[in-house]
Nucleic acid binder design. Structure first.
Length: 595
RNA sequence: UGUCCUAUGGUGUAAUGGUAGCACAACUGACUCUGGAUCAGCCAGUCUAGGUUCGAGUCCUGGUAGGACAACCA
């Protein structure tokens, strides 16, 4: 193929720009294929498979986080793109860590992200089949019961650079192994006294091949199979076979499993069952956060956050409560790409994806977070005007609303300075600014308390500027948001900063843990914030939860508080006791100037 | 002193032997009733040493750096 014969992307676009206005804007259709897509297209075109079936296999031992969201988008996205399907399979082979609480939450999160699975499975559904196959392997001399203790097994496994030693039980007869394995299943032996191992090679350079454990004895109640089993299969024995049973064509997982792949293939080959194949991609990392279930669980259990859905958590439910939209997370997952090299994504890419979506759909409202009173001395005492305001300048269909205006208002304390620096466009003595959708006002004087804090700003307004335009064409540099004092609704507003103060919180110095990297100021709760009254129309969780199916999550309404950021109602809010979360700020070039 | 994976601007990600491109971030400007949005511009990259080739980010060899593997976790 001669590259010179092709026009560049730019030229192509400009040639067709007139016809392309309504073109599909899905980014995935425009970019180059990632390596998984290449594999799938190859398999589809050379007849390795005629359709694809992927799977998302969470262990129900915790809540899903943004890293899982990437995996979900890859697995479901690939199937969707190539006309295939995706199964949801709960990898529930370790009863001591798993619980149905997590099963329900996982279902909700996947649905919320916008995906539906073809069918739902559990590794525990396959316990009988897995047991049968273990017996097959024993009969073929490929598995044996080992009586060594945990310590002996560890000792004899050798190290990365030295080979292991064969177990003294490695050459038991088939009959004895079968008998012992059957009695393990029957519950004759205590936990830890015996395991079933694959007989491969104790000297293999791949540690996974040093007679990996297939079954352990665990007298534990399983959240689905109850007390039926007291032996449970290990991940390496269960996973590939589960894929095979479901006839998964492309089993996609993260990089740390690449060393497991030869073993995954070994079990499938020895058993001669459906040849699923495993492919690995680099897991998602984001700076200023942690992404391990163990650490997230610790944050919850030790009370460093207020639950799995704390808006500062990188969990899917945390992002949802924070006000992230599913679309923004899907777009984020698309942007981070799929490759095999380790990566740390900048948090700003997440915020960009959110702003990009919310800018298009969020209704604009006015709210004052840190209020100070402003009195318009020449405005009639009792007068109230209902001023029209645009709901969303990005979408004319969203129409207008009316906002009450009167003599006494609240404005943001930061929007007034008695001695302003250069380039400060907001209110200061003698300075004229616009009150958005209302009038031009000029500051005359201020009242202060004993400590010198401004308690009230006195202004005069120009009646000719109603609606925010001056008929004489004069202009102002600053436009402020405001709320009528008489009509304002009180609210609590929760502001969030990054949960960790350091870019790579996992990296703690000697004697410290990731907890020492927590940002002590990650939560800032404001009281006495002032909302424009129309915000009380927002739907609360309490009003809606009863009409929600069990597997569907509640989605708050998203607003932009003008000049402040994107906000949504928290699930704690009830009518009359309003609580809003800040999802993210607006880009703020003034704040940047002052850094 | 092992096996495997990986290496492209600050961060991600493309280029499939033939013009190193895109996004985010940063920066500059225009416009603006959100210091928002939008638009325009700009900075910045192939880990290293050899080899193959008319031509190497791409293929080969060595080195360097990072990661994974020694749970009866997944």
């Amino acid at each position: 193929m001669n590259k010179y014969s092709f026009p560049s992307k730019k030229e192509e676009n400009s040639n067709h720009s007139i016809d392309m206005k309504e073109e599909n804007t899905e980014p995935s259709n425009e970019r180059q294929l990632n390596f998984l897509e290449e594999i799938i297209e190859r398999d589809l075109s050379n007849g390795t498979c005629t359709s694809i079936l992927t799977r998302f296999p969470p262990e129900p031992n915790g809540y899903l986080h943004i890293g899982h969201a990437k995996s979900i988008c890859i697995n479901f996205g690939l199937a969707k793109k190539y006309g295939g399907k995706t199964n949801l399979r709960f990898d529930d082979t370790n009863p001591v860590k798993e619980d149905t609480e997590y099963v329900d939450a996982i279902r909700q999160d996947i649905h919320w992200l916008g995906f539906d699975w073809a069918s739902e499975h559990y590794a525990s559904d396959y316990f009988d089949q897995l047991y049968e196959w273990a017996c097959v392997l024993i009969r073929r001399g490929l598995a044996y019961v080992d009586d060594q203790t945990l310590e002996e097994i560890r000792e004899n496994r050798g190290t990365i650079t030295t080979p292991g030693k064969d177990s003294p039980w490695r050459n038991r007869s088939t009959e004895e192994n079968l008998d012992l394995f059957q009695r393990m299943k029957a519950g004759e032996f205590p936990d830890g006294s015996k395991v079933l191992r694959a007989k491969i090679d104790m000297a293999s350079p791949n540690m996974m091949f040093r007679d990996p454990i297939m079954y352990r004895i665990l007298h534990a109640r399983h959240h689905r199979t109850g007390d039926k089993w007291c032996i449970y299969p290990m991940y390496d024995y269960a996973h590939g076979e589960s894929d095979s049973i479901e006839q998964i064509t492309h089993s996609i997982c993260t990089l740390e499993f690449d060393i497991h792949r030869p073993l995954y293939d070994w079990f499938i080959q020895q058993l001669g069952i459906f040849p699923s194949h495993q492919y690995e991609f680099a897991r998602l990392n984001i700076n200023y956060t942690v992404m391990s279930k163990r650490k997230l669980l610790q944050l919850v259990q030790e009370g460093h956050v207020n639950g799995w859905d704390d808006p500062r958590m990188p969990t899917i439910c945390g992002f949802r409560r924070r006000g992230y939209t599913a679309e923004s997370i899907r777009n984020f997952a698309e942007r981070v790409g799929v490759a095999k090299r380790d990566n740390i994504i900048d948090y700003s890419l997440l915020e960009f994806s959110l702003r990009e979506h919310l800018n298009k759909v969020a209704q604009r409202r006015m709210a004052v977070l840190n209020p100070v009173k402003l009195v318009i001395d020449n405005y009639p005492e009792e007068k109230v005007e209902m001023l029209p305001a645009v709901n969303n300048p990005e979408n004319a269909d969203d129409g207008m609303r009316e906002v009450p205006f009167c003599r006494e208002l609240y404005i943001e304390r930061e929007d007034f300075m008695e001695n302003p620096p250069k380039k400060y466009f907001r209110l200061s003595p003698g300075q004229e600014v616009r009150l958005r959708y209302a009038y031009f006002v000029t500051c005359n004087n201020v009242e202060k308390d004993a400590e010198g804090n401004v308690t009230c700003i006195h202004c005069t307004y120009d009646p000719a500027t109603r609606g925010g335009d001056a008929p004489d064409g004069r202009r102002v540099k600053g436009t402020l948001h405001w709320v009528s004092a008489r009509h304002a609704v009180d609210a609590e507003v929760r502001l969030f900063d990054r949960l960790f103060a350091t870019e790579a919180p996992d990296e703690a110095p000697e004697g410290k843990t990731f907890l020492d990297n927590l940002n002590p100021n990650s939560l800032n709760v404001l009281h006495g914030c002032k909302l424009e009254p129309s915000l009380t129309l927002a739907r609360t969780y309490g009003e809606e939860k009863d009409s929600l199916p069990a597997d569907r999550a509640w989605e708050p309404e998203h607003f932009q508080f003008e000049r402040l950021g994107y906000f949504c109602l928290d699930k704690d809010a009830v009518s009359g006791k309003w609580v809003f979360n800040r999802s993210c700020t607006l880009k703020d070039s003034w704040a940047k100037l002052n850094k």
